[in-house]
Design a protein around this nucleic acid. Structure first.
Lengths: 146, 146
DNA sequence: TATTGTTATACTCTATAACTATA
DNA sequence: TATAGTTATAGAGTATAACAATA
């Protein structure tokens, strides 16, 4: 088997493999960023999804983190113990608890987010033409109405 | 702030965000594939990196998994207990243990790998032209000599 | 002495099931 | 009855440090 294209799917298959590889390779960076701020990776992932302008419910956060709601309880407990987030009962349904980042939590979130949103060197090294084309293709693959 | 391009970095930044999002969204699929084969996610990730044709050392696997070597001991213990992999002392240095998948381990690895290497619907829906361009750009970003 | 892998330890993460309180 | 979140439980994953075997 060679690298020659034989089927229409070959290009997508290889593109996906390369994309997966590139994103996976960022994991050490993500873990390092989290640790620099005394956060475990799931805590950093959770904090990153807590928009100060638009609080989310516990169950909603569980969906964003792809894990069981019972799990989120512990993660939020630890964030709350550090004064990074507060649970606020929803007015319309007191069973629901909305997660509101504190000022300190919002600041930390912004720092972590900025560190993680920086593209890896492999992408910043691309030509302007390639970067534009890449964004255009990914925009078509991922419409904004997601 | 709008979506208009203002700096040369904007295209790369957005492309990276979209790429991260697309890969992250595959996690439930990865977890599901692992569970279908009675594997925990780290076990599936480890098995995926155990090439039957080219055994790797414990420390090498730790590097591929981005975790501490002490950790790999437990993961490999569980794979070995299920008869999926064997530890073989390296001839040139008996401190080193090479990981050799058993026939059953190699079969399971192939099944898991095939399930995970399938591109997500967002990519298979791309036009042939976009797919080709995407692969070409990613090949330039990730040279084969990695 | 240095290195590979293991063990000991302590914690976080994780899902399942049962529970509480609200609806 | 149904749903949101918690608690109880059991186990896997994780890093740090100390250790044994080998180099």
């Amino acid at each position: 088997m060679t690298s020659a294209t034989r089927t229409p799917a070959a290009a997508v298959d290889e593109a996906w493999a390369l994309m997966w590889q590139l994103v996976s390779a960022q994991r050490p960076r993500f873990v390092a960023v989290a640790r620099e701020h005394d956060l475990f990776p799931p805590q950093a992932a959770a904090l990153d999804r807590l928009d100060p302008q638009q609080p989310v419910a516990m169950s909603e956060l569980a969906g964003k983190l792809f894990c069981d709601p019972s799990n989120v309880t512990g993660i939020v407990d630890r964030l709350e113990a550090r004064g990074l987030v507060e649970r606020v009962s929803a007015p319309h349904d007191r069973r629901v608890k909305m997660l509101q980042p504190t000022p300190a939590g919002a600041r930390l979130r912004a720092k972590v987010h900025a560190a993680m949103s920086a593209p890896p060197a492999e992408l910043t090294a691309l030509s302007a033409r390639d970067a534009d084309a890449l964004r255009a293709i990914l925009r078509r693959a991922l419409p904004a109405d997601r």
